[in-house]
């Protein structure tokens, strides 16, 4: 079912997650993320896709009382990123994230992209200039903003803001990028741009994306995981999930009988 030459970049093993109020949000999740592939998480609202995605850069640490159980292994160094001994900041420096709603800082375009490098103590102007340009090019935004880098990021359109956020996440050379419904607040043209961008990005890094849009998952992802009520129902190559799923629940969801 999975091609031999695939390398596992990260993998969740018997992963459980509990919110501070005791909700058992994720139950025994086992999913591999293959290197330089796009893995899509689909499922009805509230099934835990975003919760799972946010575990990959320890976003849940920001709110006290949340609890992880099990492992998420990051390769090649075989680090369990959920381990208390591993600092959440270290994890976030390796795995970056793009959010549902474009969330640029109320700063200039340049400073938005440079911020990830600034927090790493990078202050060399030349180095920052190069990195900002590279990241903006990587997010196919450079041509649109190269003449107005000092402008406020809020002056960009919604789609441009989201690509700016991608550039911000890209500037720090992450190994994995997480996308939490990145196009749900965007118009169709901006959505196509972002999708093309992701296909371009996967040449360099591993992508995990949560999406409500099944066509989007079918279009861009290599692997798809269907989640329901905090459980992983089925994980397989996207083609198989969408044409010949092995579970009845997956088929019902895919064909729109449910969800």
């Amino acid at each position: 079912m999975v091609k031999k030459q695939e390398i596992i970049k990260a993998e969740s093993r018997n992963f459980n997650f509990f919110y501070a109020d005791g909700t058992h949000a994720l139950k025994d999740i086992n999913v591999p993320l293959y290197e330089k592939r796009i893995t899509a998480l689909i499922g009805p609202s509230g099934c835990g896709k975003s919760t799972f995605l946010r575990s990959f850069n320890r976003m849940h640490d920001l709110y006290p009382g949340n609890k992880y159980q099990g492992k998420i292994i990051l390769n090649p160094d075989d680090t369990n990123i959920l381990d208390k001994k591993v600092d959440a900041i270290e994890v976030r420096m390796r795995i970056s994230m793009v959010f549902q709603k474009p969330n640029p800082f109320p700063k200039s375009i340049y400073e938005n992209v440079a911020y990830g490098l600034r927090v790493r103590g990078e202050n060399n102007k030349r180095m920052l200039d190069d990195k900002v340009e590279e990241a903006l090019k990587g997010a196919s935004l450079w041509n649109e903003v190269k003449d107005r880098l000092p402008d406020l990021a809020f002056n960009l359109s919604g789609g441009q803001q989201q690509r700016l956020c991608i550039a911000r996440a890209l500037a720090t050379d992450p190994e994995i990028m997480l996308f939490d419904e990145p196009t749900s607040a965007l118009d169709p043209i901006a959505t196509v741009n972002i999708e093309e961008l992701m296909s371009e990005l996967k040449k360099k890094l591993t992508i995990l994306i949560v999406t409500h849009n099944m066509q989007q998952a079918a279009r861009i992802s290599d692997y798809t995981a269907y989640m329901y009520l905090g459980k992983m129902i089925e994980f397989d190559e996207t083609d198989i999930i969408f044409t010949n799923p092995s579970k009845k629940e997956t088929e019902d969801y895919i064909t729109g009988k449910f969800g």
Binding site: M59, L62, M93, F99, Y115, G116, V119, R168
Partner: peptide
């Protein structure tokens, strides 16, 4: 979401 954006890049 602005706060989370800052944390997400490793601040």
């Amino acid at each position: 979401h602005i706060r989370e954006a800052a944390f997400a890049v490793g601040a």
